[in-house]
Design a protein around this nucleic acid. Sequence first.
RNA 1: GCCCCCGUAGCCCAACCGGCAGAGGCAGGCGACUUAAAAUCGUCACAGUCUGGGUUCGAAUCCCAGCGGGGGCACCA
Length: 863
Amino acid sequence: MSNGPEDEDGYDFAAIQAKWAPIWEELEPFRTSDPGDVRPRKYVLDMFPYPSGDLHMGHAEVYALGDIVARYWRQQGFNVLHPIGWDSFGLPAENAAIKRGIDPRGWTYDNIAQQKKSMKLYAASFDWSRELHTSDPEYYKWNQWLFLQLYKKGLAYRKDSWVNWDPIDQTVLANEQVLPDGTSERSGAVVVKKKLTQWYFKITDYADRLLDDLNQLEGTWPTKVLNMQRNWIGRSIGADVDFVIEGREAPVSVFTTRPDTLHGATFMVVAPDADLAAELVAGASAEVRENFAAYLVKVQNSTEIERQATDREKTGVFLERYAINPANGERLPVWAADYVLADYGHGAVMAVPAHDQRDLDFALRFDLPVRVVVDTTAPVTGVIPVITPGMLDGSEELPDDPANGVDSDALDPAKSGTALAGEGRLINSGALNGLTKSNAIKRMIEQLVADGTGRATKNYRLRDWLISRQRYWGTPIPIIHGEDGTEIPVPEDQLPVLLPPTDGLDLKPKGTSPLGGATDWVNVVNPIDGTPAKRDADTMDTFVDSSWYFLRFLNPTDDTKAFDPKEADKWAPVDQYVGGVEHAILHLLYARFITKVLFDLGFVTFTEPFTALLNQGMVILDGAKMSKSKGNLVYFTEEVDKYGVDAVRLTMAFAGPPEDDIDWADVSPVGSAKFLARAWRVARDVTSAPDVEWKTGDAALRRVTHRFLADAPSLIESFKFNVVVARMMELVNATRKVIDTGAGPADAAVREAAEVTAMALNLFSPYTAEDMWQRLGYEPCVALAQWRKADRSLLVAESVTAVVQVDGKVRDRLEVSPKISNDDLEVQARASAAAIRSIGDREIVRVIVRAPRMVSIVTKPAG
RNA sequence: GCCCCCGUAGCCCAACCGGCAGAGGCAGGCGACUUAAAAUCGUCACAGUCUGGGUUCGAAUCCCAGCGGGGGCACCA
């Protein structure tokens, strides 16, 4: 679509863009720096982009939506901080550099230049004076500072552990970077396990707070994200139970969420890759040791995909050892099996096959006993009589277990193959018999505590955050390793530890960090005793960079501190964060964690970084995610060239609720462009002067205008951007009508409507809005014009339609005054001929009146 | 397996606290302007809200069950 051969005074988006971009560049209307500004503050933040090339349609969406919010608050009289920067460390730059034999710096900063150009054209209302790049030493110096703060607190530590290994990128991955199908989020390679010494942040120390503080965000974060985070942290409440192992001094603890079923434990299982398994098998026969060794090799060579296939047959090896059940003294055989995870709980479980499907599958496979200890039929069938509270607290006798008349075979897990996971009452469990599940859990924990063989405890699905990467293009870890293996943190006054130049370095993935090859850089002198020492050659996960960038925007050029706590007090936390749902877990969880650490260290006074969150959906095409490989890409620059910035932005807002995906095949940038032209022509056609008295204008149009002024703010605040656009269209349509077939272009209400349209359009399509504003006789910038208050007297309609229902069906409509009383309305409704007709000879039993909208007459059915 | 979200015209989507199912757009039909077309302007809606129950004077909206679609987590004890 193009503007075509228009009359000389037609709408031309290209000309308008070319006209206003340099003027805004000059005026810098969105710079936020005046310390004397007394307006209330809002910090609106859009997730910063990774510069992987030019902007794409996803960027077009997020920056369109974030800008609506930022511009809105400015018009509402707030001092708005809306910064932008680049998340510019990371693997794609390095991979591109390797492929083309160039420096990742060049690639990265070229892309940033390209994106910046597009972003400026896109006219998001950013404060460009605060622009930052995480790959600048001025930024990553403070990543290193942050690392040292965590290190001092014992929250950054090194451990030797099984890690996720990406065989293509030749680097470790955080759990969060392994996709559900067991492949790498980055390279797509099948992730394997490898034992390596790596740096971790102790996020698990914060698991409870990260979980519990989500409640504070209820209502301002999407429910979906809150649930995803809760799921990810995955807190389980249960108990640790200590089992004595024959021939071993220290008991072995297991974690269980079902301590009530302890009497039903018939064996124990340890993770084959846990140290405990190796220790226990050491005392076994040569044959078993051999079997175990072979099994372990098999387990370690299996991929995440293989391991996670839930329907695969259970495997395991008996270790020829026995554990003693602390509840009843029974001897339980100890097995090693890979359905038990080494890094969850204690890497060992008590197996209760009757009430856990995995344990049952294993028991049936290896012919181990199955003992039912919860009668799951009890509450359902009433086989056990009603249990009174007195019975539960022990003051009354519990009834015997009669369990007769029940088809025991169908319920026997050993025969049915289905574990009994449901509620029920305890049997075969000594003192617990007759108790419900929850009471039995309580009672059992009390008993374990009394015996000193167990305690209530919690476990988390969340693991510590693995932050080291064996790659070049990231923040060097500020640690020096002494010859004797000691870790020496680089003194803060020696930061930043600069990345060495790439000259002479082999960036190709080879399993160890390329920085190790920078001999001059790696080899240093131990700052404590002057002996030879080596720098840590790993770099940090780039999620460290983005976990605190919102604070750096407050004083991005300060080289004396990461951020200014006074500025943080003023601006932070972020009032409105806007970004893609793909960051619902990783980035948001890390940023929340780091914020809590900074709070504990006294650097900030808040515990959650993002007060409100808007997650926009994805831009897709024909129902499918856009991707290069599928060849269904829509290009940002093409769309912007074809339809104009304003039309693309408006389309993003109008497509539907922001959290829904936008199928670019379903929406119409052409339609958006047509609407913009239509709105623009309204402003062009206005012939009255700016000082015309609005009151003299067409009353009906004024009502439309003021209803819009009254409704739009709450719609914007609840992110119903699509509805606001629809309402703008309604306003423009109404104005057009008055110009063409009503009071005409000189009417004051036409000017008022056009001005309001320009102000509102500024949120979505700033170029068109600015041009309209100027044509209406005002100086730039419309973005700084304050939102007008609706005139309340114009909000009341002259008359409203009241409906008359008889037995729930609409039978008549009455035009009434909006101020009509319930009584008057009822009188009118009872007098309605249509109502009387449909009532017939039936008796009216009830009349419900909701003036001025509705009267409901209820009759008694005839006969 | 566990948790969450969504089903309204051909399509994208509205509908405040339960109160006239339609605000807006796309596609389409018709008309005006035009020699004609484009552009522009105007005009046109029996979809009864996925299905079945329930609550209610009244249900797209609340409750239950089911069907369909989407998302997150998952051998996490």
